[in-house]
């Protein structure tokens, strides 16, 4: 092929490179999003089976983390400051995500009580629904809780209380864990928590997940 017009010649030289560039872009794996508050695990971590009890007194297992995204917070109902603050914040994340038109299914909000001695299913049911009618509370005996918390790096320990009413406090990880729809540990949100940033991070994480799967 001979081009007499120099402009057409230049174009003809560029076209193969444009095709190569387009192919490279199409084949390149999606880049992890830049998050404002969340930390993406370098590789989603599968979670081994566990057996907890939900706020209706039913069994809650790994299957209950599958088929939808889940935000999980670990705390206890006797905690007056950090836990209500985090659960209110998480309820605001949900409210913000509900406004998103392109979100087919909302993530679920999970409160994992690390104080099974005081947080019975009945106590948790009333407590979590106060923040968001769709929140679910779960707990389990220490031998049931630890297999889950250990896999997530969530720590908790009883601390001596300073009041006869409180009895004891529990020091606990303040992070929020995000599970993907396959029930894998996908991302972590450390304090301080900001509902706007977490909601916008979640949209980025979800887009990245869908492009990667």
């Amino acid at each position: 092929m001979i081009f007499h017009d120099p402009r057409k010649l230049r174009l003809a030289r560029i076209i193969p490179w444009l095709i190569v560039a387009a192919l490279l872009l199409a084949c390149a794996p999606p880049q992890p999003p830049h998050l404002q508050q969340g930390t993406l695990l370098p590789k989603a971590k599968p979670v081994a089976g566990f057996n907890l009890i939900n706020d209706k007194g039913e069994s809650f297992t790994l299957k209950d983390l599958q088929g939808h995204w889940t935000f999980a917070f670990f705390g206890y109902t006797h905690c007056p400051d950090v836990c209500p603050t985090s659960l209110s914040m998480l309820a605001r994340v949900m409210a913000k995500l509900k406004q998103q038109e392109n979100l087919p299914r909302l993530p679920r909000g999970l409160f994992v009580s690390v104080d099974p001695a005081r947080d019975t299913p009945a106590v948790m049911a009333k407590y979590v629904k106060y923040f968001d009618a769709d929140f679910v509370g779960v707990t389990g005996e220490p031998e049931q809780l630890q297999p889950l918390t250990r896999q997530l790096g969530i720590l908790y320990a009883k601390a001596a209380g300073d009041s006869g009413d409180a009895g004891y406090h529990i020091d606990h990880s303040a992070a929020i864990v995000l599970f993907d729809p396959r029930g894998r540990f996908y991302a972590l949100f450390n304090v301080p928590h900001d509902a706007d940033k977490i909601a916008s991070d979640f949209m980025l994480i979800r887009n990245y997940y869908e492009a990667s799967e």
């Binding site: 905690c79 400051d81 950090v82 720590l155 601390a159 009041s163 009413d165 020091d171």
Partner: peptide, 19 residues
């Protein structure tokens, strides 16, 4: 019945309460 002065503190990701 009583009011206590407390401090929540998150160190290395662990939330603790002090009196």
């Amino acid at each position: 019945s009583h009011v206590m002065i407390h401090r929540s503190e998150t160190v290395d990701g662990i939330a603790r309460m002090h009196h």
